[in-house]
């Protein structure tokens, strides 16, 4: 399994994160997205005419949408990440996978505009991104009232992994996450999952690490 990867891309990171959490090895092929623009060169356009990354390749299957890659990788290496095989959970997972496209188109675009000088209608991106965050916040509050900690149920699924990176990286594009306590608790839960890996802008939870020194007898 090969992931054509860019270290700063949230959509590539989702795939790396699932692979780490599911304990499956994938081969990373770095793509010079910035400054080189390698994803727009002929060999890459031949694999993916839309000129985007990630691109995922396995046994002759080529996938270029992060939600499809998450689905494939989970089905192959960690079926528990797909959620339960019930209409309700299947539907919710599919809902959030589709929703994550809106995050890429709003927060993702605002981020590469503010960070890498890529063109965007920045005000429109920030407005749409804020709307997305409000919808996630409301959904997480509803989930909590139903006794569930994650977007699609009581355990993490690819729905969470699809929406988590952009939710945390919104400040990179000038969109504050301060007003959303449910999102902050949820991203904390995701970061506390065993096997979690970080990306630039998404720090690991240092406070979960054991203290380096001996525990004092009294304070």
């Amino acid at each position: 399994m090969i992931l054509y990867d860019y270290v700063l891309s949230p959509d590539c990171y989702k795939v790396r994160l699932l692979a780490a959490l599911a304990g499956v090895k994938i081969t990373l092929r770095p793509v010079d997205f910035h400054p080189g623009g390698e994803h727009k060169t002929a060999p890459f356009l031949a694999m993916n005419p839309s000129g985007t990354i990630p691109i995922f390749e396995d046994d002759g299957v080529i996938l270029t949408e992060s939600s499809a890659i998450l689905t494939y990788l989970a089905a192959k290496a960690g079926p528990a990440w797909l959620g339960d095989d019930t209409p309700e959970m299947r539907g919710r997972v599919a809902q959030w996978l589709a929703f994550s496209q809106r995050l890429s188109a709003s927060i993702g675009k605002a981020r590469v505009h503010d960070m890498l000088n890529k063109p965007a209608d920045i005000e429109a991106c920030r407005k749409a991104g804020t709307q997305c965050l409000r919808e996630i916040e409301a959904a997480l509050v509803d989930q909590r009232l139903a006794g569930h900690d994650f977007l699609a149920g009581d355990r993490p699924t690819i729905a969470d992994l699809a929406c988590f990176p952009h939710s945390m990286l919104a400040p990179d594009g000038g969109i504050s996450v301060d007003p959303y306590p449910a999102i902050r608790l949820w991203t904390r839960r995701v970061r506390a999952l065993p096997g979690f890996i970080e990306m630039p802008g998404i720090h690991r939870l240092h406070d979960l690490k054991p203290e380096p020194g001996p525990i004092p007898e009294r304070v």
């Binding site: 860019y6 700063l8 770095p30 010079d32 960070m115 630039p200």
Partner: peptide, 22 residues
């Protein structure tokens, strides 16, 4: 090390700093 890996390594490091700097 391939050039792209060198670029990514340094971008990773600097982008870890960026969110702190802001």
């Amino acid at each position: 090390t391939p050039m792209t890996d060198l670029i990514h390594f340094q971008q990773m490091i600097f982008l870890q700093d960026r969110s702190i700097l802001e």
